[in-house]
Design a protein around this nucleic acid. Sequence first.
RNA 1: GCCGUCGUAGCUCAGCUGGUUAGAGCGCCUGACUGUGGAUCAGGAGGUCAAGGGUUCGAAUCUCUUCGACGGUGCCA
Length: 516
Amino acid sequence: MDPQPGIVPRKIKGFRDIGPQMNELRWHIIRAAAGIYRLYGFEHWDTPLLEYADNLGKYLPDADTVEEGIYSFHNPEAEPMLAGDGREIRNEWDHVVMNRYYLALRYDLTAPLARLYAERLWNDSLKGGLSPDKAPLFRRYQYGPVFRYEYKLDPGRFREFWQVDFDTVGSSDQHVDAEACMILSRAMEAIGLPADSYQVKVNNRKILKGFLSVAGIPEQREDAILRVIDKLDKIGLPGIESELGKGRPDASGAFVPGLNLGQNELSRVMAFLEKFSGTATRTEVLSAIRSEKQMNNDLEEGLNELQTIHDVLNAWEMDETRIVFDPSLVRGMSYYTGPVFEVVSDLSYTDHRGRQRKVGSICGGGRYDGLVERLLGMKIPASGASIGVDRLAELLMMTGQYKASAAGPVLILVFDTTLLNEYHIIAHTLREAGIDTEIYFGAQKGLKKQMAYADRKNSPFAVLMGEDELKKGSVTVKDLRLGRETTDIKDKEEWKNRVQSEIPRDQLIGYIREHL
RNA sequence: GCCGUCGUAGCUCAGCUGGUUAGAGCGCCUGACUGUGGAUCAGGAGGUCAAGGGUUCGAAUCUCUUCGACGGUGCCA
């Protein structure tokens, strides 16, 4: 007989269990980044994990298919179907038409922010009391998990991962974008990345867009071309050339079809990209763009915006190594409308097969002047960026930049169950002193088991008290960290002498504090 | 989705061109030393060789299918 379906404990692919050391690192990143955001005046807001799918944008699942990219499902609750002006839709008998709306797990923190902002202004806007030039300024930061239904999971790429995001809504000022780059840079350093190990890359989508149109490339081909250009880091200029042209065979022998650009367009695009391959500084990039023979509106706007950002960065004395201009940077196909930023780390690590690997971009952001408009019907400018917490954590872990300590509690061993009340008293006084303390309540009472438990939890100290100690009013404290490090002593007794000591009970807190 | 490589103990792998009871290291468990983690020593458990079909006297080894992993590619808010 065929096996019956059963229950197997397992996690969903791309979702992870986070242990104490990874949690410590995760929260270190969040605290450091949020601290910087607050310094710049951003307020802490949270939004729900679930939103109406249509509020999140782009991905509107049609009836039966699960839309690519996001997790979505029908709301179990039927609600009145609403028209665009918020009124309930009624049928021919004047009954309210009910609908089970699609809900979706948020795929980033920016779309929910747009919803939050738009929702708060919705009434004003309906009454006509709002215009883009009166849009309130709103700056918020937020962290939490986001969800993407990825087909393929690379290292550092998950289906559930955390972001620490900050955004400014209601300002089209380029100073906001410049500031965002600055904030990213400061956050990276607050987190502990060495100043020369990362770069904030900045571009303006208007530049590529403008250039492509000047080069005579039809607008429908734009996205496809930008997508190829975005791969520059990965496949290099020759790779770009073949993918824009006739295509190329990949490493496995499969053929990557090309875009079959005409020779003229192709060489213009390549010339444009090559122009920047040798540019090291922001100033050089700016003058390279300025030297383009043909200009148009987009190109000029993009150039001016970049120039403003550059001026601001100079005023702050942000040197050219940390924040750079990269005209090939694309990012977020449809979402971003002007400046885009990305942080990449130069750090690499050796995987278990001995290959050198990089984690890729660890932050992304840019200006999105159209997101709020979708919900509010009014163009309200916004700009912001997110740090990919888990990818960054992975990077720091893999490259050994962060030494996770995740210290466990002081463990009080249960030597003698008749002394349990004494153990509680000791534990209580330690906790009063702010020291994490646990009494061992496991089923296996052997001291060996208890010690192994303390060791596994990375406890700094084990406290032992048996009859001997009780009579003397003392406790035996074992320094587990010292014990873990000490491997040169073979003799058991000698090892013990070095690692543990008996002290009066009333000196326990002082002893632990001193040795922590 | 497409191309390629692979799938042997909890983990990392060995197992030559098909041939008797499938191995190692680490980990795990038990014990010795100690009212006690590390180190050391002694012992032990654990695998229908991803699953299912085929070829063969005989398959972890050849073949097919399915599933899964990895590497490219595509997609990526």
